[in-house]
Design a protein around this nucleic acid. Structure first.
Lengths: 156, 156
DNA sequence: ACCCATATGACAGTATGCTGTCAATAGAGT
DNA sequence: ACTCTATTGACAGCATACTGTCATATGGGT
């Protein structure tokens, strides 16, 4: 299974390789989404709900939905929709925000913490297995490249 | 803008770093989609239509939609929908498949080739600029890591 | 010839993300 | 106090990809 090269006249060497990286990123994203859904399904979650739950779990302080969205690199609206569903499922709840009447703070419920802990139990061996044999240094390089690319995309 | 670490007890070092890579991949995917739409919009395309157009352009032989979908790592249905739109816009066309009555072959029209060439003209300097200053070796490593991850995800 | 697994397209429904727009809120500057 | 801007949530609409299901077509094995 190879990807068409996407190397056109005018591409620098780096520009050409970056174009390949882009196509690969799209494919991996799709595969990750599917894998995440498989992993989350037994606990009644989807990949998207799990991601939002995880972002809230990782908050140092309770924050409004828009803040969580920024952290995830998504729009307010997308995260709001998922957060509302998680609140309906009693995995998250909204708390009054003393600093802003219309922007309640999102926090985990006890049930949310339990479910998320269950997800983590499933994710840990899965991630360990997926990463086995890949040089840690290469993983670090890949993260760094993606971070740089994202930074340029968002700023420019 | 940092991402919560996602390093849990039980994660191997690699498993932990891989989890970071996953989150980063999601963010970059979103940023790439937005950038692709910006790039494609002046020529009346979306990122998705451009990708399908490019996949067809890269075919060694005319092929059915399902074949293009496999190549892209997407479902038949998703690509079928986009391909139908591109045919309606006269950028692609369906040819009778002598080997299968119900599975026509997708091919570029002259107009499709012109538009895709125009997209390439726009993409080349954009990609060169995005890749500038990133070590080519790091880009290669990132591609290789993602390819390995995708392979494991799809096969397992 | 027949049967069955596979491939393909068609159709319906769902999940996720986006943009655009509006009103309410908060905070900074005057 | 007043105004201006940024932030936030609410609501509507759209684009993209998914799953599930069906009918049709192909090709291999019997």
């Amino acid at each position: 299974m190879t990807i068409p090269s996407r190397r056109y006249a005018g591409h620098t060497r780096n520009g050409s390789v970056l174009s390949e990286l882009i196509l690969r990123t799209f494919r991996v994203h799709g595969a990750l989404l599917a894998a995440g859904d498989r992993l989350a399904h037994p606990l009644g979650l989807t990949a998207a709900r799990w991601q939002v739950l995880g972002s809230v779990a990782g908050l140092a302080q309770p924050a409004p939905v828009a803040h969580v969205a920024r952290e995830m690199g998504l729009t307010r609206q997308s995260v709001q929709r998922i957060a509302d569903q998680l609140v309906a499922d009693a995995l998250l709840e909204y708390q009054d925000n003393p600093h802003h009447k219309r922007a309640p703070l999102v926090v985990m419920t006890a049930r949310g913490r339990r479910v998320f802990a269950g997800m983590t139990e499933r994710q840990v061996p899965w991630a360990n297995d997926l990463a086995r044999g890949v040089p840690g240094r290469d993983l670090e390089v890949a993260i760094d490249v993606l971070r740089r690319v994202e930074e340029r995309l968002v700023s420019g």
